[in-house]
Design a protein around this nucleic acid. Sequence first.
DNA 1: GATGAATGAGCATTCATTCAT
DNA 2: TATGAATGAATGCTCATTCAT
Lengths: 208, 208, 208, 208
Amino acid sequence: MTSSGERVRVAALELFAERGFHGTGIRQLAERAGLSSASLYHYMGTKEDLLVELMRTSLERLLDATAEVLATHDDAVPRLTALVRLHVTSHAERPLETRVVDDEVHALSPQRRADVVALRDRYEAAWREVIDQGLAEGAFRVESAGVARRALLEMCSGVARWFDPAGPTALPALAEQYALLALRLLGADTRTAAAGARRVGDDTPSPV
Amino acid sequence: MTSSGERVRVAALELFAERGFHGTGIRQLAERAGLSSASLYHYMGTKEDLLVELMRTSLERLLDATAEVLATHDDAVPRLTALVRLHVTSHAERPLETRVVDDEVHALSPQRRADVVALRDRYEAAWREVIDQGLAEGAFRVESAGVARRALLEMCSGVARWFDPAGPTALPALAEQYALLALRLLGADTRTAAAGARRVGDDTPSPV
Amino acid sequence: MTSSGERVRVAALELFAERGFHGTGIRQLAERAGLSSASLYHYMGTKEDLLVELMRTSLERLLDATAEVLATHDDAVPRLTALVRLHVTSHAERPLETRVVDDEVHALSPQRRADVVALRDRYEAAWREVIDQGLAEGAFRVESAGVARRALLEMCSGVARWFDPAGPTALPALAEQYALLALRLLGADTRTAAAGARRVGDDTPSPV
Amino acid sequence: MTSSGERVRVAALELFAERGFHGTGIRQLAERAGLSSASLYHYMGTKEDLLVELMRTSLERLLDATAEVLATHDDAVPRLTALVRLHVTSHAERPLETRVVDDEVHALSPQRRADVVALRDRYEAAWREVIDQGLAEGAFRVESAGVARRALLEMCSGVARWFDPAGPTALPALAEQYALLALRLLGADTRTAAAGARRVGDDTPSPV
DNA sequence: GATGAATGAGCATTCATTCAT
DNA sequence: TATGAATGAATGCTCATTCAT
């Protein structure tokens, strides 16, 4: 019931994530999608267009979910908690997408790269905003907001590289653990904070 | 006073880090090294051999430094502190090397990959050991040791992607911040821990 | 009020003349004609069929007009004059057609080429006949009839490559000039010849 | 004793002349040159670079020979005679080169085309100059200098399309005939003119 | 050491064409 | 009529690698 176009995108996601953009040939893509390499071009522009499209789709979904998070919560601690849950969840549920977004930016030509990086920067701006808010509120205490933000993002993104849904930790529990780790890292009072965050956890928008 | 062989390795490091292994051509390598592409083969085996060599050199240096860390410190907190400093410092000082090691494993053929991953696993085993020790000592308190280890490693490795020696935070201060963030993340008592760690800081082996 | 079939032919004429047969893709043809590339095949056989058809149409029109010229005039000088006018006029009025006929014969497969060349040879036979007649009548004086014929034909065909209807010379005047140049080239007495030719000029059949 | 580089150029000349630039594949070129298609690229840049190189070489040789013609003769009639001889001779002796130059300009990208057309325009400027001189001297009499120049050039260039060295007319005789035809076309007094031209004919620089 | 010459295999992409709808 | 989907073959060009000099 999947269309050829979808199959192309799935194939690209799998192969770009596994072998990288430059390590994936158009013929491998075609074979995985069950098409001839010529037919591929009914469903995409260039190979780079395809990569950009995957990246943009992924980033825009994340941005939409992020906007909802910010609209749902007001204080820094629940906001940060929700951001971590969103980030971890989306990276665990869509490891292919997120790995492609995180690892293949270097394969883009300068113009396309600028476009994609702009989207990524918009996303990171939300984290910056929430961390700054927490510092202003006195809820967080770190030496450098920038260092903390980068440390957090890298830590959370890493989930896409190792999370195994069949492994010992289920995804909701993992997201909860990461939220706690993040709050600790930010110097938040985790006795009440985590509890507070947990209370609104059900509202966490799904990144799907 | 640099030999051709060194120039080849530097060129490979720069290009593999910037464009990835598959995104780097033998001709670009040769041009960057100031040689013809044929001459390149006096200083390397195949292109993959070159990548493996770079990775192995980097990982072995890190492993040696790690062994020294473990030999120097006995308790979990100073050990963990020293591991973080080592990891952050080496990733900040050698971002090309570490990015290649972290990002290009997928480009290796199965056998070579297994070799490199074995080295990386040996390195991560040191972290596992120290975290377990801290949990046993009661110095750390986390829900899952595995989750914490992965979160820590990803967080620290990320430094190679963004650290700028000309930026606002100097490397020693950055390493110190990361050590604090790590201890917080592990639920350590950071009032005494950081101080204790700082006291043995001068012993931190340089990964150079 | 133009049919799709006509639009295909016009598109082919324009593109074959501008970029050559091999330089024109079926997709460009389709786009220019306002159709999909699949729809194109409702109005043509193969791409080569289309080329042959354009060539044949053009050559047959020229052959018909040539027959009329020969039927209208009896003596070599007015006949040659009329041939030149016809050739120049048709090349100036239909530069695309004539350029395709003159320049793209090499793109035809052997069999199709033989067919088209046969038509072209029939046309050139008329020139040969008239020049021979003029030599027999004593109206022309050249060293080699073949050299003169080829020189004349190339000279007249070139008009399709440069004539600009908005330029300084209007087409009727241009045809007249070429007629005079041709007669001079053939060693005809241009004092009476041109005048004589001019007198019958109104009868020149239009190649349209 | 021919080098691979020369063989590539010869192959390109033959194939571009026979099938056109767009009708010639890189693999055909390679086969004709006795190389693999990859090896071809040791001896050329792109396929278009190769075409431009052939064109430029040919045009520059013609321009050099033209400069010598103008330096050798002072009056319009001998100058024009020598130009015709040069043009006819070079087109008869090097039909491949001249056909490529004359017929494949349309295959060039805009920038390269402008470069080549500039060279061709420099060549045609010599003809314009000599025809203008002849009109000023009263040696030529035509209605339009531009029409005459174009008619002459097309007529002479056509030689490359049909001259057969094994045919009835030998090249020197052919060049002589064309010179006479050209003078007649220009309305020159051919009784003395041709003789005068013939006297200095031995000085005609060879375009080789 | 160093390299020009060489290549088989592969690259991303386009070709002209067919066919079911 | 018209076209989306499909493709085998070909396009120009680059790949990593070898080898004689």
